[in-house]
Amino acid sequence: MSNYKTVFFTLGILQIILGIFMLLPIIIQFFYSELDSSFFGAALVTTIFGILFFLSNLDHDKKLNLQQAFLLTSLSWLSIAIFGSLPFIFSNIEFSITNAFFESMSGITTTGSTIIPNLENMPKGILFWRAILQWLGGIGIIVMAITLMPIMNVGGMQLFKISNNDSSEKILPKSKEIAIRLIYIYFGLTALCAISYKILGMNVFDSMTHSMTTIATGGFSNYNESIGFFDSVYIEISAMIFIILGSLPFIAYIKFLSGNRGIFFFRYSNQNFHKNYSS
């Protein structure tokens, strides 16, 4: 009766997405002429694992019960951290497995602790991959906090249920629409942040990576002195603004953008929803 096919099916999808994102640093490597096989190899391994998980669980029943939601949450972070460490391991900078996994976990949990002593000498591809990990970790936690966490009754997160009659069987279809909107907003904020950094004096590469880690409130930087490297009041002010934007509940942005016209999923909501944006 309890089968975990949906859990592993979703994990497979996540790994395929991760594998696709691993191809992005190759573009950066191409521009800075430091091409090597590390990201391609890691992408290949991750995608193959993802496809195997995906295909072997095609006959899943599209439902998650409470137990499986917990399993999915933990396994997805763990598996992304494991596969996310592959580019570090495959690179030619001699990361030990511990270091690679630490860096990857620090990225995907948007922590921002680093084991790299000399960030300035790192290849741009690796720096870009760290930023991508944090960016994915940021959107991952938002989507999870809004879709899965309230159902899991974790530490009072039930207060943030979007609809009152959420039974765990019907998590997936409705949350898909919300998730897509969240991703748009997240992407838009990141782009705005990158543009403002670029205008205020960062180069294109720094503005891209820093904007990703700012919105994710992650904190990976390309320099040992972090934002202090730029020594610019304006960059710091815009970083503060975007950090605060990243630390507001994202559901409030959806509410704000769709106005009060009773747009699709808000009709499910009751006043429970209004608790969301005062916190």
Binding site: T217, G219, S226, G228, A239, I243
Partner: peptide, 11 residues
């Protein structure tokens, strides 16, 4: 702000 929100940028 950076530490409060768990970002971890420092200057």
């Amino acid at each position: 702000i950076s530490i409060l929100t768990g970002t971890g940028y420092v200057n």
